[in-house]
Amino acid sequence: MTRCSFYVRVCLVGALAVLLFLGAAPQSRAQFFGGEASSASATSIPQAQLIQPDALRHLLQSGGTQKPLVLQVGSHMMYSQAHIPGSVYAGPGAESNGLQLLASKVSSLPKNKFIVIYCGCCPWSHCPNMGPAYKKLHDLGFTNVKALYIANNFGDDWVAKGYPVDSGN
């Protein structure tokens, strides 16, 4: 066996193990399998807990009773330039004061409240805010949390698609 094919096999086995783990994880509660908040990456949020931009747009425009509370967990400067209408600024998840603000925004809500968090500051794998924010809500006991999957950034994946936007504080 060549060294190359050995590494390919190792990668495949690893990927299979991750998929099995994801499949076995309970779905009834916001899930997290990252480390400390400061080091949690957006990629640590389980696939099952992600919501795509188009799905969220439909949800918000549907007028149904299942509308979520949408929280922006990135920088305020990004929020003030453009944000999802009705969304609430909840502080950057990468910072402790941001997580405190997030906690205060949800402190009076029932634990089964449907919440969607989003950032869009950077490509998903580089976002420093989503992982810690998701973990914080998980730690607070929230059971119905989705993370808006923004592949590149909020400009490309929401604004440039013509989805609804507000600006200001």
Partner: peptide
């Protein structure tokens, strides 16, 4: 230091 105004001036800096 940038701000909202400068970001909008440059077409919206909505990702870094």
């Amino acid at each position: 230091m940038g701000d909202e105004r400068l970001g909008k001036l440059y077409g919206g800096v909505l990702g870094l």
